[in-house]
């Protein structure tokens, strides 16, 4: 089977069960518990908002909404890919006692990330009245953009989880990489103000593309056909490459971990 997810047909209830458990475990034992799902992006937002509205970086009108839109996608990407990265390794106990499709765990991790994304989108909408912002109809296009984001996370989860089995160095490397990503992704800066290498990176960075498209639809603009085509093409390429590599190496993983 060369198509991702096909092998998990009929496992929907298990996947949802495990994904929901992951959400519940994540903050278990903390005082605020599940509230952290919403608080994390809000705190990110408050911090960056204070910093950037105070260092006079030429912020435009509705910078708050611009910023939180970027943060929601970025934060989901970081949490989602980091969860995906550890998904096989953390479940080696289960994998070493039940013969289970290895694909199960990166997929569960991606579904977990989708559940958290719903909460983060709730934060985005909750902040709109705070900033006196009314979105236009184009905001419904956020739905396909967020679906693309989850497909990107799934593709990278396949790739990263299987890589971690063979190359442990990927864990610190990825953590540095996602931190660096915040600077080369249009979260607190505007694409039109950028030039040189930052703009070149933005052109090929699928997360940056998705965030820019999300900005457009939130602010009443339609992304261009090229933007849709490019982001869809690269994200599906990552998905199939990730899955292909996963399939090639999944057999011998339990004895490796």
């Amino acid at each position: 089977m060369f198509i991702p997810l096909l092998g998990l047909k009929g496992k929907r209830s298990q996947i949802l069960h495990f994904a929901w458990k992951n959400v519940k475990i994540r903050y278990r034992g903390s005082y605020l518990g599940l509230l952290w799902t919403a608080l994390e992006p809000i705190l990110y937002f408050v911090f960056l908002y204070i910093v950037f509205t105070n260092i006079r970086l030429g912020v435009k009108e509705d910078f708050g909404i611009y910023l939180i839109t970027g943060i929601v996608l970025y934060h989901t990407f970081v949490k989602g890919t980091q969860g995906g990265l550890g998904s096989l390794k953390e479940n080696v106990g289960i994998l070493s006692s039940i013969n289970l499709r290895r694909e199960f765990f990166p997929v569960v991790s991606t579904v977990t990330s989708s559940i958290m994304l719903l909460v983060e989108v709730g934060v985005l909408f909750a902040l709109m009245p705070v900033f006196g912002f009314t979105p236009s109809w184009t905001i419904v296009l956020l739905i396909p953009i967020l679906i693309l984001l989850q497909i990107l996370i799934l593709g990278l989860s396949y790739l990263l989880s299987i890589t971690l089995v063979f190359i442990k160095d990927i864990q610190p490397l990825w953590s540095v990489f996602v931190h660096a990503l915040i600077f080369v992704t249009p979260i607190f800066w505007y694409v039109e103000d950028m030039g040189g290498i930052a703009l070149e990176i933005q052109k090929i960075n699928p997360l940056g593309q998705l965030i820019e498209m999300a900005h457009k639809v939130v602010f009443g603009e339609l992304p261009t056909v090229n933007e849709w085509l490019y982001s869809t093409a690269i994200i599906f390429a990552i998905l199939f490459i990730g899955y292909g590599i996963f399939q090639k190496f999944e057999k011998g993983i339990v004895e490796r971990i």
Partner: peptide, 28 residues
């Protein structure tokens, strides 16, 4: 085949006994 019985594995450390029973049972 039942899940392989071995010492101390096959369950999620962060979950309680009943939660682990449900999760494992569903996987099975």
């Amino acid at each position: 085949i039942a899940p392989l019985l071995q010492i101390g594995t096959g369950f999620n450390n962060e979950l309680t006994g009943p939660e682990n029973i449900v999760s494992s049972g569903m996987l099975y």
